[in-house]
Each structure stands twice: as C-alpha cells, then as structure tokens.
Measured scan of single mutants.
Amino acid sequence: TSIVNVSSSLNVRSSASTSSKVIGSLSGNTKVTIVGEEGAFYKIEYKGSHGYVAKEYI
C-alpha cells in the first residue's frame, strides 16, 4: 500500500500514457495498492479493476 502525494487530485488513467482516457481521480493522502508498473506509471487497484497513475505522485 502506498499513499497519493498531491495537494489537489491525481488522475487515474485507463493505460500508462498521459494521453490515455481519465477514468477517475484520487485525492491526496489516499491509500492505493500497486499491482505493477509500466514506464513512468504504476498500475493500481481501482474500483474493482485497474488504473494507472504517474509514479512521481505516489
């Protein structure tokens, strides 16, 4: 489990790309479970499925 480190919110994306669809967002200090990594993104558990967040904010 890791913590989201942002002051406002962090986009959760459908794939490991800044141009991919935003499927949701997480607020600062939210706990997330990392299940993998791809480039500059972590794959996380998100709403019963998976999403991707930028590593620099975790």
Rank of each mutant, 00 (worst) to 15 (best):
G51S: 02
H50V: 13
V32E: 00
N11H: 14
G39S: 04
V35R: 04
G28Y: 13
S25L: 14
A16Y: 03
T18S: 13
V35Q: 04
Y42W: 11
K55W: 03
I44G: 00
G48Y: 05
V4M: 09
V4A: 10
I34P: 02
K31Y: 13
N11Q: 15
V4I: 11
Y52I: 00
S2V: 15
S20E: 02
I3A: 09
S15C: 12
S49G: 15
K47M: 14
G36W: 04
V12M: 03
S17Q: 06
V4E: 06
S9E: 10
K55A: 04
S15H: 14
K31W: 14
A54D: 08
S25C: 15
Y52G: 00
R13A: 03
V12K: 00
S2M: 15
Y52D: 00
I44Y: 00
Y57C: 15
V32T: 03
K21F: 09
N11C: 15
F41Q: 01
I23Y: 02
S20K: 02
S20L: 03
E37P: 02
S20W: 04
S27N: 10
G51T: 01
S9P: 13
N29T: 07
Y52R: 00
S15F: 08
Y46A: 00
S25K: 14
G39W: 04
F41A: 02
Y52T: 00
I23P: 01
I44S: 02
V53H: 02
L26P: 00
S27C: 14
V22T: 06
G48C: 07
Y57T: 07
S9H: 12
V32F: 08
F41Y: 08
H50G: 03
R13T: 08
F41L: 01
E45W: 10
A40Y: 07
S14W: 08
S8Q: 12
K21R: 13
F41I: 01
S49T: 11
I58G: 03
H50N: 05
T33F: 10
S9R: 14
S2W: 13
A54W: 11
K55E: 01
Y57Q: 11
T33W: 10
G24E: 02
I44A: 00
K21N: 10
K55I: 06
E38L: 06
V12W: 02
S25F: 15
A16V: 04
I44H: 00
G28C: 14
V53L: 05
V32P: 04
G28K: 14
V22A: 05
H50I: 14
